[in-house]
């Protein structure tokens, strides 16, 4: 059984936000215009979060790309009254949109604020409609959405591997953000395989997880900057 996880090396990360754009394109994320954005209704499945501390000129700033952590003990699942969100056997925290009733308990419960709510039915001008990704659903009004580790890519990859009568290889399945990252700061793979790149990196001295003391056990591991 695989346990999918991600490693983000902050020392390589340049803060360019390619991951954000790649995610938008891959997952048919709604376009949120200026008015709605001003009300905080933006949707980003992965977002670059700034942490700026200290006072001028001694500033310690950090930029942190934050996807869904796909926690081992996710806070979001426990609060969902309809079972619309759950963790599957491989540890991916998924949402069944047709079950979601839009109560947003999960958006509140998630300590990493990875979940977004669709306030409206997403709209695209007709000139753009055909350019949506055909592999991913279009969420309706009133449902919550978040990063799925591009699970649809796993479905395709697994099917392809089966047709070719071989095992699923680590390079068969990577999320869009990892694929696009120009400074190669993101890694993806199987945490259950002790020899996978993510496993090896997760044991590095620089490795840390976000809000570790909450006991959520994220499967996204960061490597800190510096030596």
């Amino acid at each position: 059984m695989h346990k999918w996880g991600m490693v983000i090396d902050l020392d390589r990360c340049s803060g360019c936000q390619t991951c954000m754009a790649a995610c938008h394109a891959e997952n048919n994320i709604a376009i949120i215009g200026p008015e709605e954005s001003a009300m905080g209704r933006t949707i980003h499945w992965i977002e670059l979060l700034p942490f700026i501390e200290g006072e001028y000129p001694h500033i310690k700033a950090r930029l942190l790309p934050r996807p869904c952590m796909h926690c081992e003990h996710p806070a979001c699942i426990k609060v969902c009254p309809v079972g619309a969100t759950y963790a599957n056997e491989e540890g991916i925290v998924g949402i069944v949109y047709s079950r979601c009733i839009g109560c947003r308990y999960c958006t509140t419960a998630c300590p990493y604020t990875v979940r977004s709510f669709n306030w409206y039915k997403p709209q695209w001008p007709k000139e753009m409609q055909g350019s949506l990704n055909r592999d991913v659903s279009i969420r309706g009004k009133g449902v919550v959405e978040k990063c799925s580790f591009c699970h649809h890519r796993l479905l395709k990859a697994r099917e392809k591997a089966k047709v070719e009568k071989r095992e699923l290889l680590s390079e068969d399945y990577i999320p869009a953000c990892v694929q696009a990252c120009p400074s190669n700061a993101m890694y993806f793979g199987d945490l259950n395989d002790p020899f996978s790149t993510v496993s090896i990196l997760s044991r590095e001295r620089r490795a840390f997880k976000l809000l570790e003391d909450l006991g959520t056990e994220p499967k996204v591991i960061y490597l800190s900057e510096g030596m």
């Binding site: 390619t18 754009a21 938008h24 394109a25 055909g130 350019s131 949506l132 694929q179 990252c181």
Partner: peptide
């Protein structure tokens, strides 16, 4: 319809990766 853009892994400038503008 063009539905997605990915980096060309053979192209030596970007070797399969992109920037936000490229995706857009």
């Amino acid at each position: 319809w063009a539905v997605n853009i990915a980096g060309n892994p053979l192209h030596p400038v970007n070797r399969g990766t992109l920037c936000p503008k490229g995706i857009a």
